[in-house]
Design a protein around this nucleic acid. Structure first.
Length: 260
DNA sequence: GTGATTGTTAGTAA
DNA sequence: ATTACTAACAATCA
């Protein structure tokens, strides 16, 4: 379940459960057809190394060390990483299984196979190669206002464009626009400087809260969109109705009253 | 059966 | 160059 807050939660999990243990084995799970995973040569490179650091950049996740190889993980729509101890069995849909010293194991599971894992040498170089913009919680106000303010694309699409900034997907883009009261089909180029400023602040506030509650939606304020993201429901903030439309091929939920 | 799903990419078109 | 639209990937659920 990965947008920026969900991905940060995964990063924390890796950090607390999977660092500083020597890798004994990295293997492909069963049912791993039609998904991009490292070949045996790449997997072999991991053996004997340790992950000393877990990083997040947008929806990308990295684990590795300065002198050793890194894994670059993208969770796709339904990917998830689980840490557990042998002899417990890996969960369903495990595509890649890493066994560390001391029975600790890390499973990359991915039911819909839309995620992937790669073995790389340098996360920074990888981010550049992949044309991924700055992390949405790392992008500066000036850069944000510039890239959104010059864009003729619809706001929702612009926020979700991983080359502009990385980490915002369907749910959180809706949440941000709901918070600021802008319709998802508005254009960045039509916003005033003040509106761009407020949008930047709103993006940070929403994502920071999402990170703070560790992407546990039950802990989000009840007047936010995500807990009320149902077609036809009442807007928790005004007398409006939650409705939806297609933007960029995704379903955009918004309040028909206070978002314009 | 139909349509939808927290993501990305390729192809096409304007 | 930028943006929009569609389909595709695959599994599952309402």
């Amino acid at each position: 379940m990965p947008e920026l807050p969900e991905n940060e939660r995964q990063r924390r999990m890796l950090e607390s459960e999977c660092l500083n243990r020597t890798i004994e084995k990295a293997e492909i799970g069963s049912d791993a057809d039609h998904i991009e995973l490292p070949g045996s040569n790449s997997l072999g490179r991991l053996k004997g190394h340790r992950f000393s650091e877990a990083r997040r950049h947008g929806k990308n996740l990295f684990a590795g060390s300065q002198s050793g190889p890194w894994i670059a993980v993208h969770l796709g729509m339904t990917g998830w990483i689980v840490a557990f101890d042998a002899p417990d069995d890996p969960p369903d849909y495990t595509k890649l299984l890493i066994t560390f010293e001391g029975d600790r194991r890390m499973a990359f599971r991915c039911p819909r196979k839309l995620g992937h894992v790669r073995v790389i040498d340098d996360p920074d170089e990888y981010i550049t190669q992949q044309d991924v913009g700055p992390d949405a919680l790392g992008i500066g106000r000036v850069t944000f206002c510039e890239t959104i303010g010059k864009s003729r694309a619809r706001l929702k699409s612009a926020l979700m464009d991983q080359s502009r900034m990385a980490g915002i997907g369907n749910l959180w883009s809706d949440e941000i626009l709901f918070g600021i009261g802008l319709h998802p089909e508005r254009r960045g180029i039509d916003l005033s400087d003040d509106q761009l400023d407020e949008l930047f602040d709103m993006m940070r506030a929403k994502l920071e809260k999402g990170v703070e509650v560790n992407a546990d939606y039950s802990q989000l304020p009840t007047d936010w969109l995500i807990p009320n993201r149902d077609e036809g429901g009442d807007c928790p903030r005004c007398g409006g109705t939650i409705t939806n439309t297609k933007v960029g091929g995704r379903t955009a939920y918004f309040c028909d009253s206070h978002q314009s």
